[in-house]
């Protein structure tokens, strides 16, 4: 369980969007590096060093593949390093390849961590806020697919056991399988969709004022952080839409001050810092008696 995941799901959604959008809109080597390191550090916190290092080794190869493949296909650039089969391998293309590989790998780590903390119940919580009916519909659908799978397996096994498929004709075999599939579909649909109807017929939930209990509350802290993130996004998107790093034919000069890197770095490392702070606090609060 991660402390960062205790934030409101909407905030988490906004946060990951801000990180990825900032990275891709700037395409700046330092910002991409910050996002990559931040993503990997948080991934380590979520999964522990042992499991995470396996993934890091794997993604290192992905990184290498992109970083090597890119400059061998793009030959634009002011400074040729050497010539490969009569095509220039340039410093600019190598740099861009590294940045591109970093951005792709960073996105992979962030989305992996994100889906780790953004669980089904959070999706439902967000949807219920939008509309209670939508929440119910989605939860029904969510229930339907795994239920159908289990039922299908059960029936397959049972029918196979009593020799349902022991026929020579393939067409007949397929027909029987289809019949079974249809039956399973009807039965599952009944379980998932008809039951609520029955409950409704009994007068369940017919009163207009239906209340719902919300586990996740959008607190003041969440609100402030969300507004901060949105402002951050608007400011930097405005900036980078004018000053996106250009790689061809020469890498464009960077006019961003050191202070901006600190702010962006803080954003990228925020989950890691928060997580570390919480674990220190947890240790501190444990009774020594």
């Amino acid at each position: 369980m991660s402390a960062f995941s205790n934030f409101h799901p909407i905030l988490l959604l906004v946060y990951v969007t801000v990180v990825v959008v900032t990275m891709f809109s700037s395409f700046h080597p330092i910002i991409v590096a910050l996002a990559l390191i931040g993503g990997i550090l948080y991934f380590f916190i979520l999964h522990g060093i042992r499991t995470a290092s396996k993934d890091v080794v794997y993604y290192f190869f992905v990184f290498l593949l992109i970083a090597v493949a890119y400059p061998s296909y793009v030959h634009n650039g002011f400074t040729p390093l050497f010539f490969l089969n009569d095509h220039a391998v340039t410093l600019e293309a190598v740099t861009k390849g590294l940045v591109l590989a970093g951005a792709v790998v960073a996105t992979c780590f962030w989305t992996k961590s994100y889906f780790e903390i953004f669980t089904t119940n959070k999706v439902l919580a967000v949807l219920t806020r939008v509309s209670a009916n939508l929440g119910i519909l989605v939860s029904m659908l969510w229930r339907f697919i795994p239920l159908f799978k289990t039922k299908w397996h059960e029936k397959q096994m049972a029918q196979r056991g009593i020799g349902y498929y022991k026929v020579n004709s393939r067409v007949e075999k397929f027909r029987r399988a289809f019949a079974l599939w249809r039956q399973t579909l009807v039965q599952t649909a009944e379980l998932v969709f008809v039951k609520p109807d029955v409950m409704k017929a009994r007068g369940y939930g017919m009163t207009k004022a239906r209340t719902q209990y919300r586990v996740m509350r959008f607190t003041k802290r969440d609100g402030i952080l969300t507004i901060g993130l949105v402002l951050f996004l608007l400011y930097y998107i405005g900036y980078f839409s004018q000053h996106q790093t250009q790689y061809y034919p020469e890498i464009s000069e960077q006019t961003l001050g050191a202070g901006h890197y600190v702010i962006i770095g803080l954003l990228m490392f925020y989950p890691f810092i928060y997580e570390a702070k919480e674990s220190v606090k947890w240790r501190y609060l444990q009774s020594k008696i």
Binding site: Y58, L64, L65, A69, S72, P80, L81, F82, F83, A88
Partner: peptide, 29 residues
């Protein structure tokens, strides 16, 4: 999935080296 990607990576490198790479310095070119 990961094994397949590693195999693809190695194949890419080997194929790239085998299909005749010619490396020249800037001056040479």
């Amino acid at each position: 999935k990961k094994d397949l990607l590693v195999v693809a990576f190695i194949l890419f490198i080997v194929g790239w080296l085998v299909t005749g790479t010619k490396i020249q310095s800037v001056e040479e070119y």
